[in-house]
Amino acid sequence: MSPVLVDIANLSIAFPTQQGLSLAVREVSLTLGVEKLGIVGESGSGKSLTARSILRLLPSNALVTADRMEFAGIDVLRAREAELRAIRGRRAGLILQDPKYALNPVMTAGEQISEAWRAHRKGTRRQARAAALDLLAQVQIRDPERVARSYPHELSGGMGQRVMIAMMLAPDPELLIADEPTSALDATVQAEILRLLEALVSRRGMGLILISHDLPLVAHFCDRVVVMYAGRIVEELGAADLSHARHPYTRGLIDCLPTLTHPKSRLPVMVRDPAWLA
């Protein structure tokens, strides 16, 4: 049995609005070991909030309650900011959707990776630079020297995303959270980045949480998938069992996709049952 990295029991996240509390995440429980877990759902399903709550990276007006909310045995809800800083970036990295916005536009890629490495590893400048080049090579960049000298605007989307992954790998984290890491990328680049993440995660023995709206994609790259709808987990299944999904929402997500191999003249439209919210 692999060590438990994340243990969440009965997590709810609410936001105050003029009409009272709005519940964005409702009674979510999940555990994660050294494995690849996909969280799938549509906009507003609470998938990103759930994953970010592990790092307590939530909007300041969020009201969070949980029976248990632990990262590697640390109680995240009661941890002090200093303790959280030891988790964020160091023991758990977060990869965001669009490298154009997530990277610092006035620092070269190499400087940003070196900075991340030094912040967590306390080495010399020279060591940090060597580490940055090594990390760039690990994310399969053919010419690490050139990329290290480049500014983010000089890199393509796929390159930028590799730089972000390299930066997150610098402190050798135990968990990677990737929030829609490939939705801004072309299909070929998307496949490359996901294959890279998959390889890195299994080689380093990390846990991975992949957040996406793309159910077939997630099932392809993860071991296990949880499907969220309106703040709740409606179904949890092994990635290989996707075709046996039971919940009508999960089935609907699969059926409403146009496919090349099974053409339909009309796409089935999701009929949302109010009972799913109960």
């Binding site: 549509e42 793309d214 997500l253 009309r266 089935p268 999701m270």
Partner: peptide, 14 residues
């Protein structure tokens, strides 16, 4: 768009 909404819009366009 979300995939469920994509299906609705594609049907509408058809």
């Amino acid at each position: 768009l979300d995939v469920s909404v994509q299906a609705e819009v594609l049907n509408l366009l058809a």
